[in-house]
C-alpha cells in the first residue's frame, strides 16, 4: 500500500510537470496582453516598457524557468489586469464556485440515485423506459442553452428568481458563502440546477447499469430467498455494490463539473473562478489562466488519486498495482 502510494505520488509530480510545460507554451499564444493593457495611442517607448515589465522580452525557455522557480516558491505571478497575485484572485473565488458545484451535486444525487435504482430494478416497466429516454435527452441538452431558457422562464417571464449574480454573502469559517442567506438561495438555485442537469442523466445511467448487473447476482437472489424485504435488497445490498463505479465516475465528474461551471458562471454572471477564467481569456490575462489551469490540474490529480484509494476501501477485492 505505501509503495503504491509513493509510486502514485511520483507519477503525480511527472504529470504536473508535463501539464505545466504544455500550459505555459500554449498560454504564450493567448491574445495580446500588451494591446489589451495599453491605450491604442501608446508610443513605441511605452510598449517596450510594458513588454519589459511583464517579462515578455526574454526568450520563452527563460520565461518558463522563471515561472517554474516562482511556482515552487508559491508565486503564480501577478494578474496583468488587476495587478494582484493571480492565485489570490482565484482562491478568493473558490467558495463561490464550490457553492454551486456542491449544490448541483446534491441535487443530482438526490434525484438521480433513486431514479436509477428504480429503472435498474424494474427495467421492463414503461416508467423505466421513460426515465431512460429522458436521460438520453438530458445528455443531449446544450447546458448553455438550458441556462438561458431557465433565465428566460424563471426570471424574465415569471420573475421568481434573479437572472444573474450572487446573493448576499456571509462570512462562515473564513469563507464568504451565500448559501446561508435567503437572497443567496434565490440566486443559487438556477445555476445549480443548470449544472446538475447533465449530471443527473449521467449518474442515473450509471446507477441503473450497476443495479441491473447486481440484481442478477446470486447474493441478491439469496437475500430474497432469505426473506429480506425488497426495499432492503434494493438499497442495502444491490445499491451498495452498484455504487462502486458510480463513485469512481463521479469523482472524475467533480472535475468536469468545475470545468462546466465556466459555462454556467458565464451565463449567470456568477462571480466564481470559471467566470474569472473566461474573462481572463478575453483580456489575455495570462498569469490567471496559467494559475487556474495549474490549480485545476492539481485538483484533478489529487481527486484521481483519492478515488483510487476510496475504491479499494469500498471493494477490498481490488488490488493496487
Amino acid at each position: 500500500m505505501i509503495k503504491y502510494i509513493i509510486k502514485r505520488l511520483l507519477q503525480m509530480l511527472v504529470v504536473l510537470f508535463v501539464v505545466s510545460l504544455v500550459v505555459f507554451i500554449f498560454t504564450n499564444y493567448i491574445g495580446d496582453p500588451i494591446s489589451m493593457l495599453l491605450p491604442e495611442d501608446a508610443s513605441q517607448e511605452e510598449i517596450q516598457q510594458a513588454i519589459r515589465r511583464l517579462g515578455l522580452d526574454k526568450p520563452i525557455h527563460v520565461q518558463y524557468g522563471i515561472f517554474v522557480k516562482d511556482i515552487l516558491s508559491g508565486n503564480f505571478g501577478k494578474s496583468y489586469v488587476f495587478s494582484r497575485p493571480a492565485l489570490e484572485l482565484i482562491i478568493e473565488r473558490i467558495p463561490a464556485t464550490l457553492e454551486i458545484v456542491i449544490t448541483a451535486m446534491i441535487i443530482a444525487i438526490v434525484l438521480a440515485i433513486p431514479l436509477g435504482v428504480y429503472a435498474g430494478a424494474y427495467p421492463k416497466r414503461r416508467s423505466s423506459k421513460v426515465i431512460m429516454a429522458g436521460s438520453i435527452l438530458g445528455i443531449s441538452l446544450p447546458s448553455f442553452w438550458v441556462g438561458m431558457m431557465m433565465i428566460y422562464i424563471f426570471s424574465v417571464i415569471l420573475g421568481w428568481m434573479p437572472a444573474s449574480g450572487r446573493g448576499e454573502a456571509i462570512e462562515v469559517f473564513g469563507m464568504r458563502l451565500s448559501i446561508f442567506s435567503m437572497s443567496g438561495w434565490r440566486h443559487i438555485m438556477l445555476p445549480a440546477l443548470t449544472l446538475a442537469l447533465g449530471n443527473i442523466a449521467m449518474l442515473l445511467r450509471l446507477t441503473r447499469a450497476g443495479m441491473q448487473e447486481n440484481m442478477r447476482q446470486d447474493y441478491v437472489k439469496f437475500a430474497r430467498a432469505k426473506g429480506v424485504s425488497p426495499k432492503k435488497v434494493l438499497f442495502g445490498h444491490a445499491l451498495k455494490n452498484a455504487l462502486i463505479p458510480v463513485v469512481t465516475v463521479f469523482g472524475v465528474r467533480i472535475g468536469q463539473l468545475i470545468a462546466f461551471t465556466t459555462i454556467t458562471e458565464t451565463i449567470y454572471a456568477w462571480p466564481g473562478m470559471g467566470k474569472l477564467l473566461i474573462d481572463s481569456i478575453y483580456m489575455a490575462d495570462r498569469p490567471i489562466i496559467v494559475a487556474y489551469l495549474m490549480l485545476v490540474a492539481v485538483i484533478f490529480v489529487v481527486i484521481n488519486f483519492a478515488v483510487d484509494i476510496i475504491y479499494t476501501l469500498i471493494d477490498p477485492r481490488i488490488e493496487l498495482r
Binding site: T27, G255, A259, F260, I263, I281, I289, L293, V296, V301
Partner: peptide
Amino acid sequence: IQLSFPSMLIALFIMSAF
C-alpha cells in the same frame, strides 16, 4: 493525462491560444 482533464477545458484552452 488527457483523460484526467475535462475535454471541454482542454478544448477551451487550445482554442483560446489558436
